[in-house]
Simulated scan of single mutants.
Amino acid sequence: MTPVNVRLREWREADAPVVLRAFQAPDLRRQAPWPVVTLKDASGWIASWEGVGHAFAVVEGERVVGNVAVTKLDSHGNGWVSYWVVPEARGKGVAVAATELVARWAFDERGLYRLELGHRTNNPASCRVATKAGFLPEGIERGKLCYEGVRYDVERHARLATD
């Protein structure tokens, strides 16, 4: 795989069309706290990060191709990482590169010690992202998520500042 060159930047109001298009992908629809079906919804999604954590637009060249975030920061130096990539940019290492960048930022700039993330056990692509970005598996959380009446197990991963 060719190394991917991405950078992280703050989300901008002008990115709303990218967010709207991204959340039209069937597997991303559940990643938003509400349905993102209009530009106003997409703008609201961007604005919703204010005060709840740090979300970054993942930029490849001049195109926004994804999101990576650290939320749930606590007094113990822990944070929760999440990521998504638009379908047309998948399979190139974008999510891995962005997750590595946000981890370095969280450890170096925010002084966090432990970062966690989780993925459904039926999502091997997300598992590969986590492990390639240095997040070690820590176990299965049985029946943690429920989508449309179906329960899903989640595999938790973590990366420490000392890893």
Rank of each mutant, 00 (worst) to 15 (best):
residue 2 T to F: 06
residue 4 V to L: 08
residue 6 V to C: 12
residue 9 R to F: 09
residue 10 E to M: 00
residue 10 E to Q: 08
residue 11 W to K: 02
residue 12 R to M: 15
residue 14 A to S: 15
residue 14 A to F: 01
residue 15 D to R: 09
residue 16 A to K: 11
residue 17 P to Q: 03
residue 17 P to Y: 05
residue 17 P to F: 06
residue 18 V to R: 14
residue 19 V to C: 04
residue 20 L to R: 11
residue 23 F to Q: 07
residue 25 A to L: 04
residue 29 R to T: 12
residue 29 R to S: 02
residue 31 Q to G: 13
residue 33 P to T: 11
residue 33 P to V: 08
residue 36 V to W: 06
residue 37 V to L: 12
residue 38 T to Q: 05
residue 39 L to G: 14
residue 40 K to M: 01
residue 40 K to E: 15
residue 40 K to F: 00
residue 41 D to T: 07
residue 41 D to H: 15
residue 43 S to P: 02
residue 43 S to Y: 04
residue 44 G to N: 12
residue 44 G to L: 04
residue 45 W to R: 13
residue 47 A to T: 10
residue 48 S to L: 07
residue 49 W to A: 12
residue 49 W to V: 05
residue 53 G to E: 02
residue 53 G to K: 05
residue 57 A to K: 05
residue 63 R to P: 00
residue 65 V to S: 09
residue 65 V to R: 09
residue 67 N to V: 06
residue 68 V to I: 09
residue 72 K to S: 10
residue 77 G to Y: 04
residue 78 N to P: 04
residue 80 W to Y: 14
residue 81 V to A: 09
residue 84 W to H: 07
residue 86 V to M: 14
residue 88 E to D: 14
residue 89 A to L: 06
residue 89 A to F: 06
residue 90 R to A: 00
residue 91 G to Q: 06
residue 92 K to W: 00
residue 93 G to W: 07
residue 97 A to K: 13
residue 97 A to H: 05
residue 98 A to K: 08
residue 101 L to Q: 15
residue 101 L to G: 00
residue 107 F to N: 03
residue 111 G to P: 09
residue 112 L to E: 09
residue 115 L to Q: 10
residue 115 L to K: 08
residue 118 G to V: 03
residue 119 H to G: 03
residue 124 P to G: 12
residue 127 C to T: 14
residue 131 T to E: 15
residue 133 A to T: 11
residue 133 A to H: 06
residue 134 G to K: 07
residue 135 F to C: 10
residue 137 P to G: 10
residue 138 E to Q: 15
residue 139 G to W: 07
residue 139 G to Y: 05
residue 140 I to Y: 04
residue 141 E to R: 13
residue 141 E to Y: 01
residue 144 K to Q: 13
residue 144 K to F: 08
residue 145 L to Y: 13
residue 145 L to D: 13
residue 147 Y to D: 10
residue 148 E to Q: 12
residue 148 E to G: 00
residue 148 E to V: 01
residue 149 G to L: 03
residue 151 R to F: 15
residue 151 R to W: 15
residue 151 R to H: 15
residue 152 Y to H: 15
residue 156 R to C: 03
residue 157 H to K: 02
residue 161 A to V: 13
residue 163 D to C: 07
